[in-house]
């Protein structure tokens, strides 16, 4: 059964085979996508026609590479901006939530905590449409009543940010709460006894302790936002994010330029993942 017990050879061999097959299954689509980004062909398929960087660098007229493709470059920039604001907002509010639920006592705390967890179990599509409906109703209300036309209430950049923030904040809340639970309260008490104010305690003692969780959850929040599709789909305005833009391209037929974008995404997210892992490992070691 397990490594300390004697096991028949057939058991361990077949188990290892299964694991190898599983990892092949896991990586096959990504590896193929990356390889075909460099195929000198007009379609993302075999046969292999030779190595080429055309899908990154070509500047027309037959092929336009990623670095000259205005629409994809713009959507990458929009996604990065969105993810930046979403992670700032989520880390701020999520951390405040963690302090609220871990360190404060008030009536209705359990109910509010339950409410704060629900965004993670509400399907993203539902979050998207309910926010769209509300923004739209509010927009109509302001226009009828005050003759105001508020940009924020139409499908737009900031509506996407709000929609993604609404559930990513819960994720940050959970990560920071878990770290805050491990915090030794006597450190805070000592500082308070020595005359520090609560604000000083949080700034000089609690926040430095939380830093690994803040950085880690901020990075994951960035990624979650960068890749979000379901919620964004209903809230997106004229500024399309990368996943939406890619989706439209995949739906309407594919060119290897999608592979080129995918290759960049795979390489950069893996790098970010490894960095995040090293940082959080070091944080736990403290």
């Amino acid at each position: 059964m397990i490594r300390t017990l004697p096991q028949p050879r057939s058991y361990s061999t077949s188990f290892t085979c299964y694991i190898i097959l599983f990892y092949v299954f896991l990586f096959a689509p990504l590896v193929i996508t990356c390889i075909l980004a460099f195929n000198d062909s007009n379609f993302p398929s075999l046969p292999w026609k030779g190595f080429s960087l055309d899908w990154f660098l070509a500047d027309g007229p037959d092929r336009i590479g990623l670095f000259h493709d205005r629409s994809n470059l713009t959507s990458i920039w929009v996604s990065a901006k969105t993810a930046f604001w979403v992670s700032i907002l989520s880390v701020t509010v999520g951390t405040m939530g963690a302090f609220l639920f871990e360190q404060e006592e008030f009536r209705g705390k359990q109910a509010l905590y339950f409410l704060a967890l629900t965004p993670l179990v509400i399907p993203g599509v539902i979050l998207g449409i309910s926010l769209l409906l509300t923004a739209n109703s509010l927009g109509i209300f302001f226009e009828d009543r005050f003759g105001l036309d508020i940009e924020l209430l139409r499908p737009s950049f900031w509506l996407v940010v709000l929609g993604q923030f609404s559930f990513i904040a819960t994720f940050v809340l959970l990560v920071v709460s878990a770290r805050l639970k491990k915090f030794d309260a006597s450190l805070e008490e000592a500082a308070l006894n020595l005359g520090a104010t609560r604000r000083q305690v949080i700034r000089h003692i609690t926040l430095p302790f939380l830093r690994p969780a803040l950085v880690g959850s901020g990075a994951v929040a960035f990624l979650m936002s960068f890749e979000n599709f379901n919620t964004t789909l209903f809230l997106v305005g004229s500024e399309t994010t990368l996943p939406i833009n890619l989706y439209l391209q995949v739906r309407d037929g594919s060119t290897p330029i999608i592979n080129a974008v995918s290759f960049l995404l795979i390489v950069s997210t893996s790098t970010l993942a490894v960095i995040n892992l090293i940082v959080s490992k070091r944080g736990e070691g403290k």
Binding site: T33, F226, E227, L246, Y247, V250, S262, L265, T269, S270
Partner: peptide
């Protein structure tokens, strides 16, 4: 860590 869209495309 890679976008769902990329994996489905693969």
């Amino acid at each position: 860590w890679v976008s769902e869209l990329v994996r489905v495309y693969g």
